[in-house]
Design a binder for these strands. Sequence first.
DNA 1: AACCCCCTATACCGATCTGTGAAGTTCCGC
DNA 2: GCGGAACTTCACAGATCGGTATAGGGGGTT
Lengths: 188, 188
Amino acid sequence: MNDQTIDVDQLTPGARQVLDAASRLFYEHGIHAVGVDGIAEESGVTKRTLYNNFASKDALVTAYLQHRHSSWWPRLQERIDDAAAPRALALFDVYAEDALHVTRGCAFLNAAAELPTDHPAFAVIRHHKASIEELLARLVREDSPEEPTPDQLGRHLFLLLEGAFAHQGVRGRQLITEAREIARSLLQ
Amino acid sequence: MNDQTIDVDQLTPGARQVLDAASRLFYEHGIHAVGVDGIAEESGVTKRTLYNNFASKDALVTAYLQHRHSSWWPRLQERIDDAAAPRALALFDVYAEDALHVTRGCAFLNAAAELPTDHPAFAVIRHHKASIEELLARLVREDSPEEPTPDQLGRHLFLLLEGAFAHQGVRGRQLITEAREIARSLLQ
DNA sequence: AACCCCCTATACCGATCTGTGAAGTTCCGC
DNA sequence: GCGGAACTTCACAGATCGGTATAGGGGGTT
């Protein structure tokens, strides 16, 4: 399924440093505001090493989002597995915890705001958001089988979650806890 | 209140062309992806004229968002005035109509994703979003006085609206109509 | 030993970035 | 017809952009 995911453990040390530095800088300052010179300097590696490991800046941007998704997703799954019904609230909990260091909102929506829709990374963005929406829909179907319209409830929770997350960089992190409270009341 | 708004009618013709072209390009391609050379070329004026009317690219970015808010807000108010209760749904209607040409989601959230938080335009972004949230809260208080927690319902609608709008560039425009349907059911 | 891979350093490419300088033109109100 | 605002063209500055070139060092495998 995820044939494109980045296996961090098999990256060369230099490549790992490049990806880490690029992730920090892209998220903090935006993609177009960060140059490859800055990434190389921040990662303690020369541009030659950067281009030995990543074909282009665009490829590095794609790897940034792929890695962000593929390292976060198992952590979310773990929290879902440990949660009691309604497990959908576990997503809000994870987002609320992340909010302490994820101070500029959703990295995927931020990237979508900057990239052309035919950029290779755009497929990663769509995959990430579709995964979350499908996960919420499944959790609602399984945990609230008496619900007459589980699909609509799933989308309802998705909009609450993403609305709060999208505004995190503008409004701050209390919005996500308010969204969780609203979601909790919806799930009885 | 709005001492910083741009009065389009008293801009010089060249300045107006610059602002229009910059607005198109900033929204379509992002702020950092667009250079002043491209804005000058697209607007049919020279860079000299651009800098005679705007102190810097940052000032032009700020004017772009100020104008976008100050030209859209009266149109929204008009629709609110003409709407029947619950008037909050009129916001969803306006967003749904805008979606036909506003294909890359919210210009203010997109800008917030690219700009540093101390950029002058960031205050415009916060003002815009606070205005919408306050408007929704007021409409709910006035139209649904029987509601036990009108503030929470207002925030609930805000999150639905903004969640759908934020995803418009990724998921397309049917999400906003689904959000409207959910909002309608919440308002009975 | 030879080889290969990954790394280093430094210099360079053409293009583009924001912003400025100087000088000349068009148009409008007085 | 004059002044001035707004415009034009052209050139340029200094920096930075993404990306490449050359040359060599360090360590592990065979």
